[in-house]
Design a protein around this nucleic acid. Structure first.
Lengths: 151, 151
DNA sequence: GCATATTGCTTGCAAACGCAAGCTATTTGC
DNA sequence: GCAAATAGCTTGCGTTTGCAAGCAATATGC
């Protein structure tokens, strides 16, 4: 019992550490090469992978673990530089959808290439393909109750 | 090639998602129950697991992936409430070490129990012990070049 | 040894974020 | 149908953070 508790604790700490490392490196390259932050990248990715290629602000907020006001304030500059647009709902006048523009989808695609490159650096040198597959399915189990996810 | 690239990308996205979920939940309980943030918790943990139970500010900054100014500004309120103290180096007058007080170590120990509990929630219901062990060793490989780590 | 470079730390400023309050639009209870 | 509750969004305010500049102490080059 104590042993597994410690193992779980170690595992969670390593998870935080590895993810923070990856995120820090990604952040630098995304902003330097593509001019967007990690959160802006993830926002575009959420849009791309949503059912109708558009999401309301509260929906985005829940998926991204940020407050609704953060989405409002993230979307504003992204609208200004033409990465996203806003759209109203025909039935519910409260909803304000965030929609990716053509430029936004292009930017996402470029940024995704950077993301994939870094993911490759992280895993391909150190894990066998078989391990990667196994790990991916294990992680999917962890996300079981997580609602709408990116992957 | 393309297949594994996609797999790596998916894996990295899941890693971000799972870790963000965990961190969000942890953040709420740490601040509500123990009155500290995740970063304050990690700062105390870094101190506890360092060689001499003390670390300079730039050293802490590197380990925590934050700027040096953030450490300065995190340490100030923690000193005020008596969780950490500052100590000078005998040989190098530039160094200002951060040291955990007795109260700081106690607080860490309590917060670590919360952390472990949540780590248990995350893993124990969904993974076999054998999988947990295997995953831990895989993650350790990912941290190979990461310098000083927590686990 | 002395000028120069580097290192550790702090501070001013601006960007990003959460919370609470407020506004409008929709839903619910009766 | 109508009052009350709820949901979606935005804005004000305080907190946290990074970057760049600045200051003091140490290391380096000659």
């Amino acid at each position: 019992m104590t042993r597994m508790t410690d193992t779980h604790t170690t595992l969670a700490l390593r998870l935080l550490q590895v993810t923070d490392d990856f995120r820090a490196g990604l952040s630098g390259e995304l902003s330097a090469v593509h001019g967007i932050s990690v959160n802006e990248f993830l926002l575009l990715l959420h849009l791309e992978r949503s059912a109708a290629n558009r999401l309301s602000r509260v929906d985005l907020a829940k998926r991204m673990h940020v407050s609704a006001s953060t989405i409002t304030r993230m979307a504003a500059p992204m609208e200004k530089i033409g990465l996203v647009d806003r759209a109203a709902d025909a039935r519910d006048a409260r909803l304000v959808f965030v929609v990716a523009t053509e430029a936004g989808r292009k930017r996402l695609s470029e940024a995704l290439a950077t993301f994939s490159k870094r993911a490759g650096y992280l895993f391909s040198d150190r894990w066998e393909d078989q391990e990667v597959d196994r790990f991916a399915s294990m992680l999917r189990r962890l996300m079981a109750g997580s609602g709408d996810t990116l992957a």
